[in-house]
Design a protein around this nucleic acid. Structure first.
Lengths: 218, 218
DNA sequence: ATATATTTTTAGACTAATCTAAAAATATAT
DNA sequence: ATATATTTTTAGATTAGTCTAAAAATATAT
């Protein structure tokens, strides 16, 4: 079907389209892929020939219908494998990404659908991100950033925006786990840091932290 | 570490060394890999530079200690994934090979050791082949070909020599499954076909079939 | 032992994915 | 509006893995 590299580009374009709904630029994709703009241009040409992206020179690009379907399928695989690693193989949520990056490229419809069944059709991956079903449909959960809550408001911790190892380990260290109830006790107007209450304890976190935590409000 | 291609060559050399213990030839490996002799020469040079094989021009090659270790590790991964596919994901023994060929190249020590534990340290894959442990040690089972048994002798079906889809499906169709007790009722001297008894039924199989079935005798 | 056949290697080319450096297009600023 | 800066594309190279065709080495046969 498609090469690992093509799939990785499609996935990256998918994520960038959330940030830039009008279209993705060569430089933005180069940064996301940690590669050079010239390499991106080469690859975009190839993806365009294969009808995976819509592209006009110098005008940016967007996923085609086929490109979108393919990207979502790779994301489904990535997230299902993450669930497998955490639930069955004792991985922690900060260890799964690297391995899932490899596993997401394994080609087998049966494999992924059976894995889905084996895991009992999970709706979220270990970081709270929704898992597309076999038709590519997501459950969109309405969530807000913790940094957007006002003093006195509360909700459930349902996901992270940044899932870097360091951030995830930071959360682990403070016992901030998915599903925890978090309430804003205080909000410092000067630096936007917040005093939060969770698990019967109070904790002060910076705006950088609260801006990476997704909350489902009641 | 090593590329998919390098790992595939190492695995193929490993298997060929069983057949040709003195050393593997370029042509033999080309046939095994379904590629051209010139491609094999190119790759062998690379493997030789990386100290994975011992090679002298025109004189064939053998795996080095490092090459052997690497090949065994790939085989361990392949066979563990096969067990996973059959035991957890409802694959049949004739469906697993193609997917395991992909999964065997995933790089993660933790992944494979946790998978091993998750599967409860299986000693054999779905075709009866032994699974190396995390040190690379195999359990060698003393087995003989069904075609080597004499009239009246019997044993347990413990493995297949040829694990092609067609052969495995042939066995399925006749309910010849791993673990079955098989007894030679009759042996036809002319074509070496045998009348076997298993599961309370008698069945005639050709020499080609009996030459691909491994038996553990009591 | 020498001619012939077979095997193996080399030489040169191709594709995919990447890079650097330069050119072309577009955007920005005064 | 035109010069300058930025972005994007192109041109040309590089690496891994493969191929074909030819050359070199080895094996076989009479």
């Amino acid at each position: 079907m498609f090469t690992f590299s093509e799939e990785n580009y499609l996935k990256a374009i998918y994520h960038l389209e959330r940030k830039f709904p009008v279209g993705v630029s060569t430089n933005a994709l180069a940064e996301e892929m940690e590669t050079k703009a010239s390499s991106v241009t080469d690859m975009i040409k190839k993806l365009s020939e294969k009808k995976l992206v819509n592209y006009k020179k110098y005008q940016g690009f967007k996923l085609s219908k086929l490109g979108m379907k393919t990207a979502v399928s790779v994301i489904r695989k990535h997230r299902l494998w993450e669930v497998f690693l955490v639930e069955k193989l004792h991985f922690s949520w900060d260890e799964v990404h690297e391995v899932a990056e490899q596993l997401e490229h394994i080609k087998s419809e049966k494999l992924i659908d059976e894995l889905d069944r084996f895991l009992d059709f999970p709706k979220r991956d270990p970081h709270g991100d929704p898992i597309p079903d076999d038709e590519g449909n997501f459950i969109i959960l309405n969530k807000v950033l913790l940094s957007d809550l006002k003093k006195g408001e509360s909700g459930i911790f349902v996901g992270v925006k940044d899932s870097s190892t360091t951030f995830l380990q930071f959360l682990d260290k403070r016992n901030i786990a998915l599903g925890s109830e978090i309430k804003i006790s205080e909000k410092e107007p000067f630096d936007q840091s917040v005093l939060i209450k969770l698990n019967e304890q109070e904790l002060r976190v910076s705006n950088l932290i609260s801006g990476n935590i997704y909350i489902k409000t009641n």
